[in-house]
Amino acid sequence: MEMITRRRALSLGAGLSLAALAPLGSRAQGAEPSFPHRPITLWVPWPAGGATDLTMRVLAEAAGRHLGQKVLIENRPGAGGTLAMPVLQQAAPDGYTIAQLPQPALRAPWTQKVMWDPIRDTTPLLQLSGVTFGILVPAASPIKTLDDLFALAKAKPGELSIATNGVGTTPHVVMDELLGHRGLRYVHVPYKGTAEQMLAVSSGQVQVGVNSNGFAPYVDSGKLRLIATLAEHRTKRWAQVPTLKELGHGIVATSPYGLVGPKGLPGAVVQTLHDAFKAALFDPAHLAELAKYDQEPLYLGADDYGRSLREAYAAEKRTVDRLGLAKAG
């Protein structure tokens, strides 16, 4: 009888102990681990080794330190910088898949048929920076000014070769506007990335290149001549080079860019990512990397960035309509 009682007492004690632990165990098992509890993938729609890719890698490393998890870069170049959009559209809204959103992603839906929408299918995180676009020629080229470029295009209709970073990108649209308004034809040569394009221009495979700040090392080393920039004001780095605006062409293009996640990201996840990448944006190592390409921070928080994206999306439609580039149907 005594043995049975002891057994029952032991059994009861064990049962009570398990019961006491059960709620804690079930909560631990069913609760979501705090975000982030694994690496985050940042999709960059440009080739590895280009200016944007390099700055994004420095940014990702700094953000990873604040998040306590690695931020892994995945490159998906091509289609004018829009190939991260299908990835975002299909990604789970959990914060582990984010992407850089460049200006062409706001233009593409107006010029071609795509299955995604840059506003509907994204959650804005923050705006990071903008780029300095430039029009470049080989150092030995007879083209020294924009007027020289127009004169050559007029003298040899349809023969002047101009490289950009893709169909429908800002450089492509700008050159169409510049030459189209003058009735000048040219051969458009699209490239997937800045490095490949600048090598082609510096070697004379194409006569003119138009691209973002990745051209800096080629200009500074004397391989390329910068004849105009597309920003609001002259750059500090190449203060002798005029802007399209001051040359009387009324064009300003800086293509601000930022980071977005899939639609439906929870507010707490947005805040965590925003805070980490804002800190990374102003990290000295990242600022130094931006400076290599004459870039500065153009920070906007999630709400302001979302508002700016909506305004830019509407503005792109007006530009596309004005230039007659709208998709058929």
Rank of each mutant, 00 (worst) to 15 (best):
K70I: 01
A84I: 09
A99R: 04
V71C: 01
K223T: 08
P190L: 01
A153S: 13
T55Q: 14
A239W: 15
Y299A: 06
A288L: 12
Q295G: 12
R310E: 14
V137R: 02
E61H: 12
L290G: 04
G158T: 11
M3E: 15
A163D: 01
D117K: 04
D220Q: 13
L323S: 10
Y218D: 08
Q69E: 08
T169K: 08
S11R: 12
L178R: 07
D220A: 11
V270N: 09
L12I: 12
A239K: 14
P39N: 12
R27L: 11
V58M: 14
L59K: 00
K113H: 12
Y186W: 13
K156D: 15
E296P: 13
L265P: 13
G13Y: 06
G204N: 09
H181E: 14
L21D: 07
Y96P: 11
V174Y: 00
Y299D: 08
L106T: 02
T229G: 12
G80A: 00
E246T: 00
G209E: 07
P190H: 00
K223V: 03
A312L: 10
L259I: 14
T164D: 04
P297C: 01
A268L: 07
G30P: 03
S141P: 01
V44T: 04
L309R: 09
V114W: 01
G258N: 00
L10Y: 10
Q240K: 11
T164M: 07
H188A: 07
S141A: 02
R185L: 15
K156V: 10
V44W: 00
K223P: 05
R76P: 13
L16K: 06
G209Y: 02
L136C: 02
Y299F: 11
M3T: 14
L244A: 04
M175A: 09
H188W: 03
E2Y: 10
A14R: 06
P262K: 03
A280Y: 01
A279V: 06
A139I: 07
A195R: 15
A326N: 09
S212M: 13
F133K: 04
M56T: 15
G168S: 04
F133M: 08
Y96E: 08
L126V: 05
S26C: 13
W46Q: 15
R182F: 01
D117S: 11
G95D: 04
A328V: 15
T170M: 13
K70D: 09
T254F: 10
P45F: 00
D283P: 02
G214S: 02
L309Q: 06
L83T: 14
H249F: 07
G264P: 03
Q69I: 02
A285M: 10
A228K: 06
A195I: 12
G134V: 01
Q90M: 11
M115Q: 14
R8H: 15
Y191R: 05
P86M: 03
G306L: 03
E232D: 12
P124S: 02
I40T: 05
V44E: 01
T254K: 10
P171M: 01
P284S: 05
K223C: 06
L101W: 01
A268P: 05
A79D: 12
S129F: 09
T111L: 08
A20P: 05
